[in-house]
Structure formats: structure tokens, C-alpha cells
Design a protein around this nucleic acid. Structure first.
Length: 287
DNA sequence: TCCTAAGTCTATGGCTCAAC
DNA sequence: GTTGAGCCATAGACTTAGGA
């Protein structure tokens, strides 16, 4: 029963993604991974977690005494029909007629469902969820923008030839926008790399040529002994980076951390939004 | 072209430290 | 003692280079 296995679908997705990031086949395979992971998780136990984040509730899938990553209850919609509805809405590659927050919930659910499947079936695997998240967001960006990404850019220098490895770079063509798209499940202090890459791109190609639009899932951390969930954030560091290293155009989250949402209201300008908004604003971002 | 080893990248839990 | 902010170690997946 190969189709019942999320890993089999994931393997096909890997192959399809490396052949063509924006192809519709990826969407079909993402749906298969979602469906198979949902089926697996439908039998799994759930444990409610104590949320120390205001206005958010979390639970975790459990196996015996073992607890896995926190899942945001308000964002988790374990329904394949929602993914199908989303696919229908974005079929035209334009601003879709579907509520942005509903998109955020759907994409969050597709990602987290597979992550939890990996948590339950593999020990200590952090790479596979990260790569899957790249496939998911990378494809959606490529689909919406209509171009395939590059993953490394030549960085010109008089004395050396080197390339900058980035998650994804989307080039819409001459005189049009270029997107710098780092994709992370969580960043914590590693977020500095995103600003550093943006600074390099500004220096080599000119400030403003590349729009930095990182997409991050969440910044939660689960204390498995106390069964508590917190968000690990560095808001003051972010403000310093945005002022003194480079400017990021948007920072998209699937589960926007409370203290980062507040950065929308203070100086310097730092626009932190739920990911679903990208679909509506993709065409107007460069302006 | 295939295989293997070395190197890189990644997310996460546990930890420190300072302020209160 | 508690909390927020940030640091560090770690292990597995993935990528790349080089040899056969």
C-alpha cells in the first residue's frame, strides 16, 4: 500500500521538486503527503499543553509517555478538503478569492501534519521536516510568481569566484522584482543569517534589487517535563538588524509569535505578517 | 557513471544570566 | 523563585567532491 505511506509520497515529491519547482505535480504530491500523514495521525493520542503564550492554545501528539512538538490548536485544520479548496482558489496564479487567514491555517496544517508524522516515526530527525517545509513554501512561491527559483547566486569579487547559497531566489526577469526567500521552520538566533544574506545581496546587486521575504513556521518551544509552550523571540535584536544590517520587506509566519507581531507598531518598520497574506499581496509587494 | 566519505545545514532541548 | 532573552551542543539528513 504505497500511497498510504507518507514517506513514499515524500520521496516522489523530492524527485518532482528537483525536476520542476513550480509544477502542478508538486501540489498533487503535497496533497498526498498531507492525506497520508493525516491518516497516520488520526490514530495518534493527543495531550493538551499549558500555553504560556497569550491567546494561543497548544496540544502535542503523544506516544506512550513521549511528547512531540507543540501544535497550535487554532491553526490546525486536519482536513484534506481544505487543501483541495485552497488548490482550487490558487489555480489561476493570481490573487485568490479565499480568506488570507484561512490560507495560513491550511498551509500550517499541511506542514505540521507531516512534521508530526516524522516526529512519531523517526528519532531526532530535524532535517526532513525542514526540507519538506522548503518544498511546500518554495513551490507555493514559484506557483504564485510563475517562475522557478535559484538556490545560489554568484557573488562577484575582483579576486575570487564564489556563490552565496540561499534557500531560494526568484527572478521575475529584467526590470522586475527579485525575491530573496529564506524558508525556516524556526529561526531563534540563527535568524541573523537572513539579514546577513540580504546585506550581501544589497552590496553586490544594489539595495532594493532583492526583496527579502523570509517565511518561518513558528518560534515555539515545548518544555516536555512541564508540558508548557513558550515562544523564543529576540525582538530587540531584530530591530537592530533591521536598522543596521539590511531591510527585509516582509517576514511571514504561519504561527506569528506574539512579540514579533508587536514590531509592526514600532520603529524601524518591520512588517511581520501571517503567510496567507502573501497570496493577495504578491503582485503589489515590489511597489 | 556510481559510490563513499567528508563537510554542511538544520531544528531543537537544555542551559546560563540578568532583572525583578 | 520566576521570567525573558539569548547561547550552545547535538544528531540526523542532505550535498558535494573525488576516486574507482
Amino acid at each position: 500500500m504505497p500511497m498510504a505511506d507518507p514517506l513514499a509520497a515524500y520521496g516522489k515529491l523530492q524527485a518532482a521538486f528537483s525536476a520542476d519547482v513550480k509544477s502542478e505535480e508538486n501540489q498533487i504530491l503535497l496533497g498526498q503527503v498531507f492525506e497520508a500523514s493525516l491518516r497516520f495521525l488520526s490514530k495518534a493520542d493527543r495531550t493538551p499543553l499549558k500555553s504560556l503564550v497569550p491567546d494561543k492554545e497548544y496540544f502535542a501528539f503523544a506516544a506512550g509517555k513521549k511528547l512531540f512538538r507543540a501544535v497550535n490548536k487554532g491553526l490546525f485544520v486536519p482536513e484534506l478538503a481544505e487543501w483541495e479548496a485552497f488548490r482550487k482558489a490558487i489555480a489561476g496564479n493570481r490573487a485568490p478569492n479565499i480568506d488570507s487567514d484561512r490560507i495560513t491555517r491550511i498551509i500550517y496544517s499541511v506542514a505540521v501534519t507531516f512534521f508530526c508524522f516524522i516526529d512519531l516515526t523517526k528519532d531526532g530527525d530535524q532535517k526532513t521536516p525542514g526540507t519538506f517545509f522548503e518544498y511546500l513554501i518554495g513551490h507555493l512561491f514559484a506557483w504564485r510568481l510563475g517562475v522557478n527559483p535559484k538556490t545560489r547566486l554568484p557573488v562577484l569579487n575582483l579576486d575570487m569566484e564564489a556563490t552565496l547559497p540561499t534557500d531560494f531566489i526568484f527572478d521575475l526577469g529584467p526590470n522586475r522584482a527579485k525575491f530573496h526567500l529564506p524558508i525556516k521552520v524556526s529561526t531563534r538566533e540563527r535568524v541573523i543569517q537572513v539579514w546577513a544574506h540580504q546585506r550581501v545581496l544589497n552590496g553586490v546587486y544594489g539595495t532594493g534589487r532583492f526583496l527579502g521575504t523570509p517565511v518561518i513556521l513558528t518560534e515555539t518551544k515545548t518544555d516536555k517535563k512541564k508540558q508548557e509552550v513558550i515562544e523564543i523571540c529576540l525582538p530587540d535584536q531584530w530591530r537592530i538588524y533591521q536598522m543596521h544590517i539590511a531591510q527585509l520587506k516582509r517576514i511571514y509566519y504561519l504561527d506569528v509569535p506574539a512579540s514579533y507581531a508587536k514590531l509592526n507598531e514600532v520603529f524601524p518598520p518591520l512588517s511581520v505578517k501571517p503567510f496567507g497574506h502573501f497570496f493577495a499581496e504578491a503582485d503589489t509587494l515590489p511597489t
